[in-house]
Design a protein around this nucleic acid. Structure first.
Length: 422
DNA sequence: TCTGGGGTCCTAGGACCC
DNA sequence: TCTGGGGTCCTAGGACCC
């Protein structure tokens, strides 16, 4: 029994989300910026054609953007997250088993669909998402996830494929592997691509034909799995239930440089709340926390500073008051006055499921009371929004807030935004 | 002036134990 | 010149992904 996977990938996802709700943007170059409006993280095809690069700082291309009237958007994760959920909902009509791989990509298990006309089925997936949601997607179908990724890539790039490519016949797989660079294979990044080139491996076809020993020696066991997948041997299963995260991180750069401990502390407190909310959502508690603060990496000699402090808890916790207390203490220990801070954040580590928390004999915290408080806060935030309930330590001015000068309305999730459009 | 954020897995090497 | 052998755990660093 051979396996069969489809990879459905939204084209230029963030840029397409902006376009769905603002059709006048059709045909115009669009870019979406990272947090703080720093770098370009998504581009429409028109923007790609202008030569705008992924990850490029906006200030470097300001002239080009103005000259070609590129439409610029701050990232709007509320909008993108909601659109993503709608796409997944639509895809789930086409397979009982869908793995949500990222915000804009899903794998579908087509294991028993050999008897159907696969190209027609793939095209139907594409057309349905387009018609229902206005979202353009590419569909790649193949016997392994790695080959499905590769098929999807060609589906998107090749005008002839027109967004859909099925790789089930050997001669098609061979042609696809020969026209794909090794570095464009899923799991082969820039470092490995360079290393492989030095060893005479340039295309995906070359990579498919290295020995197992070669793959393991130069690319470790993960690379060996990739090579096997290129041969059509399915080694990477669909992950239907997202695994609980082992670390959770929240950090942001500030809109402006900050000199005062109190202001960095306000930002950090806000991030602790977000991070702890993610932690409780996956029903885990943290056994440790790392807090960090830093200046810009790009400062002159003597102007840059970065430090971190890790705290271990006697009893794993998800309580905000407790996490905030530890975080602020750690911050005070690493904070050095006189620097222009640009970023702070925290990692929650040593996560354990709620069900297997070991209580410490030395515990002095009223866990029951904290749990009730957290439950109440989560409920309020769910109903009234993220900022509904705040701690004093979060401040009210938020001088450190992110720049979001080009934010689009949250069309799908906020009534007032929807009304504003009408 | 302006430069993102959030994850995972694997390996090598050191510490430690018997 | 001699200076065991093997196992486990932890951490740092390197690679990858979106």
């Amino acid at each position: 029994m051979t396996s069969l996977f489809a990879l459905v990938d939204c084209n230029n996802f963030y840029a397409s989300c902006e376009r769905v709700f603002n059709p006048t943007l059709e045909g115009n170059p669009i870019v979406v910026l990272s947090n703080n409006d720093g770098c370009i993280i998504a581009r429409s095809n028109e923007a790609k054609e202008l030569g705008l690069k992924m990850g490029q700082p906006l200030f470097e291309v300001r002239e080009l953007v103005e000259k070609h009237r590129v439409q610029v958007f701050s990232s709007n994760y509320e909008l993108y997250g909601d659109m993503s959920a709608r796409v997944v909902e639509t895809l789930s009509r086409f397979s009982p088993h869908v793995e949500v791989y990222s915000i804009d990509e899903s794998f579908l298990d087509l294991g028993n669909f050999f008897q159907v006309d696969l190209p027609a089925y793939a095209r139907e997936i594409r057309e349905t998402v387009r018609q229902w949601l206005g979202m353009p997607v590419a569909v790649g179908v193949a016997p392994t996830k790695t080959l499905a990724k590769l098929a999807n890539r060609i589906a998107k790039k090749s005008p002839k494929a027109d967004g859909v490519l099925v790789l089930t016949e050997e001669r098609h797989i061979e042609a696809a592997l020969k026209r794909t660079a090794a570095g464009d294979v899923w799991g082969i990044g820039g470092r490995y691509a360079r290393k492989l080139a030095g060893l005479g491996v340039h295309t995906a076809w070359d990579l498919r034909h290295v020995t197992d020993a070669f793959a393991k020696k130069h690319l470790t066991v993960a690379g060996l799995r990739t090579v096997r997948e290129l041969r059509g041997e399915a080694c990477i299963d669909l992950e239907l239930v997202p695994a609980a995260k082992q670390n959770i991180c929240t950090s942001r750069s500030f809109g402006v440089g900050i000199y005062e401990l109190e202001e960095v502390a306000e930002a950090l407190t806000t991030y602790v709340v977000r991070c702890a909310t993610k932690l409780r959502r996956q029903q885990s508690k943290a056994g440790a926390m790392t807090v960090f603060a830093m200046t810009s990496r790009f400062g002159a000699e003597g102007e840059t500073y970065a430090n971190c402090r890790t705290v271990t808890f006697d009893t794993p916790t998800d309580s905000e008051p407790e996490l905030i207390r530890h975080a602020l203490k750690a911050l005070r220990e690493i904070f050095r006055p006189g620097f222009r801070y640009r970023k702070t954040g925290l990692l929650l580590l040593d996560l354990v499921p709620n069900s297997s928390v070991q209580l410490s004999l030395l515990d002095t915290v009223d866990r029951e009371k904290h749990a009730q408080l957290m439950q109440a806060l989560d409920g309020l935030r769910e109903r009234f929004g993220h900022g509904a309930v705040r701690y004093g330590a979060q401040g009210t001015e938020q001088t450190w807030g992110q720049r979001q000068e080009h934010l689009s309305p949250c069309y799908t999730t906020r009534l007032e935004d929807l009304l504003r459009v009408r």
